[in-house]
Amino acid sequence: MDDRLVIAGKAYRSRLLVGTGKYRDFEQTRLAVEASGAEIVTVAIRRVNIGQNAGEPSLLDALPPSRYTILPNTAGCYTAEDAVRTLRLARELLDGHSLVKLEVLGDSETLFPNMPETLAAAKTLVAEGFHVMVYCSDDPILARQLEDAGCVAVMPLASLIGSGMGILNPWNLQIIVDRARVPVLVDAGIGTASDAAVAMELGCDGVLMNTAIAKARDPVRMGRAMKLAVEAGREAWLAGRMPKKPYEAAASSPAEGLIGKTA
């Protein structure tokens, strides 16, 4: 069965995208990413440590761009200008690669997105030829505006970044999913496998997570759990769940032929 996630014209088998932060070391990162089956992995762009030993291993040795689609992010940026500068550097760093994850934060405590700055940055980036996947609030109107601005995927939060609180407002996500013409991915807030499955059962096209895997007791095993959860949720959505019947119990076994009956 050919069920692919298509982003900016490229098809992916996996609907799970994973971050690479907060792992113990690059080896654990590599193993967890591998177990997750993710094909798209996010990275951050940071100043190099000038005193650093140049022989030190780098993240991209563990996760080579020849094998993974590297998705540079703008985590930590609080203005459109900083986000745009960061992604121009990322494009140069990754040999002209144009698929990026835009996030412009509004507040260091909640890491909630600053949507006016996000929208401004998205417009600039699209005009410069970037393919923008955008972290956003779960406001359906703003999601539509980002889509209209040319973003290739909208990625509303399910709950705060790194909180593991799961899907707090499935109704908003549902509205965004129902109306979007580009892929919708839940980005942020997933805590465990059932959260990922619920996101997929809502009809999301994919899920992006980092902490839920990296901060599990066994990140490699959780990577695999998330892979299975995303697949299960997707399959359930494609299969179409049975109708909910809150006041109507219906036995699955025949009502006839029970032993001990007189008639």
């Binding site: 792992y23 951050a44 940071r46 960061t86």
Partner: peptide, 10 residues
């Protein structure tokens, strides 16, 4: 000058 690399991040 800004000199950057890719590091782990979400």
């Amino acid at each position: 000058l800004e000199v950057v690399v890719a590091v782990g991040g979400g």
